[in-house]
Design a protein around this nucleic acid. Structure first.
Lengths: 143, 143
DNA sequence: AAATAAAAAGATATAAAACTCTTTATATAT
DNA sequence: ATATATAAAGAGTTTTATATCTTTTTATTT
């Protein structure tokens, strides 16, 4: 479904969002621990997301990653697109180079709705949305 | 979504099913061409599917792969499970080791229905189902 | 100014997936 | 029986994804 890169990226973003709300910045080590991800790998991912302005960072003591109000509006789709590209939007389930209504693969019709819901899911959920939900202890980033 | 192995496997099975209907057997070369897949790779995949009895083969001249009436009842899920294992059933979208109703990841709820539909899709479609549809020229295995 | 804590950057390593090639075994036709 | 077409098997290669390590740069604190 998503690449590891993307899985780690989404979890990291949710994690950072929550810490940011409390005004603090989070270092890579805390992110890695808090999301059960390999430290250096998640560092690269955050670097990339920083470059693409989906998250901010400051260097030096008391530095780390953080998000402002605007960043909280980032959707899961934005993260997915930044890390995995557009394949989830464009790729055929059976790998046909072109697969569309006019020249569909055998499962094109059956997959259409699933794909639509998948895209809807990642587009309608913003990082900020998770903030409120996470507090309630209703879900987890590690286990 | 699916691995390349699985994509090729599904297309190959649909292809063989159609040829079998006409009573003939199909060689690896034809399968590879008919599904736009690398010959040796798809050979390995068919080997594996043969070992798992999802398809039959005979060696020698006029040999090749074929399916009997029973084989046509194979669902896409059977193929997926044979080639990709159960990950589609068990894996968490965000990669949590355990992710369930009691200890869900942040998108567990939103993904529940999508997953259900995905599984429904692969379980309800059998290889035989495609046979009739394919004849009408309504869909394609290559393009 | 110096020390330090942190991210940024880049180089490297490892593992898994995808793909290819070669050889062997087998069944069938002639 | 022999030749041949084919699948089976296995070894090997390439590519891509994942992960790690090392160095550099920067900002902050003291």
């Amino acid at each position: 479904m998503f690449s590891k890169t993307c899985e780690y990226g989404i979890k990291a973003m949710i994690f950072v969002a929550q810490k940011s709300k409390e005004g603090s910045r989070v270092g890579i080590k805390d992110i890695a621990k808090g999301t059960d991800a390999p430290e250096h790998f998640v560092a690269k991912i955050m670097q990339e997301l920083g470059r693409k302005k989906l998250v901010h960072s400051v260097k030096g003591p008391n530095g780390g990653f953080y998000m402002d109000q605007f960043d909280l509006k980032t959707s899961l789709a934005d993260i997915v697109k930044a890390l995995d590209g557009n394949s989830i939007y464009s790729d055929c389930v059976l790998g046909l180079k072109t697969c569309n209504e006019k020249k569909p693969c055998p499962v094109h019709d059956q997959y259409r709705d699933i794909k639509k819901n998948l895209i809807k899911m990642i587009e309608e959920n913003t990082i900020g949305d998770f903030n409120t939900k996470l507090d309630s202890g209703k879900f987890f980033l590690v286990n």
